[in-house]
């Protein structure tokens, strides 16, 4: 079986700083992969590379077997693919951001239906119907005509999830989806994500919600200083005795609902 996402030898440098130092990762289809690690470990950068928001310096990313952004020739050189092909591969990916990034001049419905109209060229009524169905999925059908500024953070993030889902991606990427939410609002977003995982969506989640990672994640990848230190099922990764660096990292989460792990 072809992995939904396959990452090999991924290196990302910003000038002198090497943020990713050779990452190898397989994301199985229909499973939830959680990227955890301390700030600056490179987990968000890795996710942004998967969304092609950052272009990796070296290495390759395959999405459903198709190269993302660059083709690697047998002699190891990389050539940039034409933008049409990049967009075709990218269209299999949905992205959810820490700060929602909803477009403030469009209603919730407008945010979700916009790409259906502009990119997929659907008629207004069909686009609105599909967008409405997605809003219903995240429980916001009666907030459809409100603008982002009129929604709570949790509702905005659910709209953002609906916006990504509207294009029927095969893979959903989440970049710290609850980090800018109050603890009270975190739950509603995590519930939507749980339902999505139960539906069999392939998900890659960067999160500080260790409890969520442990309970929903099928695969945990622990990054530190741009390297993948550990990778396995939650049982394997969190089992004692633990990797010393992970233990140190988890210590900071004792008071954040992760006590169940210890």
């Amino acid at each position: 079986m072809i992995a939904a996402v396959s990452v090999t030898g991924l290196v990302k440098r910003f000038g002198q700083a090497e943020v990713l130092r050779g990452i190898d990762l397989e994301v199985p289809a229909g499973r939830v992969t959680c990227l955890i690690g301390p700030s600056g470990s490179g987990k968000s950068t890795l996710l942004r590379c998967l969304a092609f928001l950052e272009e990796a310096t070296e290495g390759a990313i395959l999405i459903g077997g198709e190269p993302l952004g660059f083709a690697v020739t047998p002699d190891g050189r990389r050539t940039r693919l034409p933008s049409g092909r990049i967009r075709a591969v990218r269209s299999q990916i949905g992205m959810v951001f820490q700060h929602f990034n909803l477009w403030p001049h469009m209603t919730a419905l407008g945010n979700v239906s916009e790409a259906l109209k502009t990119v997929r060229r659907l008629g207004r009524s069909e686009a609105d119907d599909r967008a409405m169905a997605q809003l219903r999925k995240v429980g916001l059908q009666n907030r459809a005509n409100l603008y982002p500024s009129q929604l709570s953070g949790g509702q905005q993030q659910r709209v953002a999830i609906a916006r990504a889902l509207a294009l029927e991606p095969k893979i959903m990427l989440f970049d710290e989806p609850t980090s800018s939410l109050d603890p009270e609002l975190t739950g509603e977003v995590l519930n939507v994500m749980r339902a999505l995982a139960a539906d069999g969506m392939t998900m890659v989640v960067v999160s500080h919600e260790i409890g969520f990672a442990a309970s929903v994640g099928h695969q945990i990848a622990f990054l530190d200083h741009g390297q993948l230190l550990l990778r396995g099922t939650p049982q394997e990764v969190f089992r004692k005795p633990r990797h010393a660096r992970l233990d140190q990292f988890l210590d900071t989460y004792l008071d954040r609902g992760a006590a169940m792990l210890l």
Partner: peptide, 11 residues
Amino acid sequence: GHVEAAACVGF
């Protein structure tokens, strides 16, 4: 981020 969100939905 608003521009990135547009890129992510294929604009």
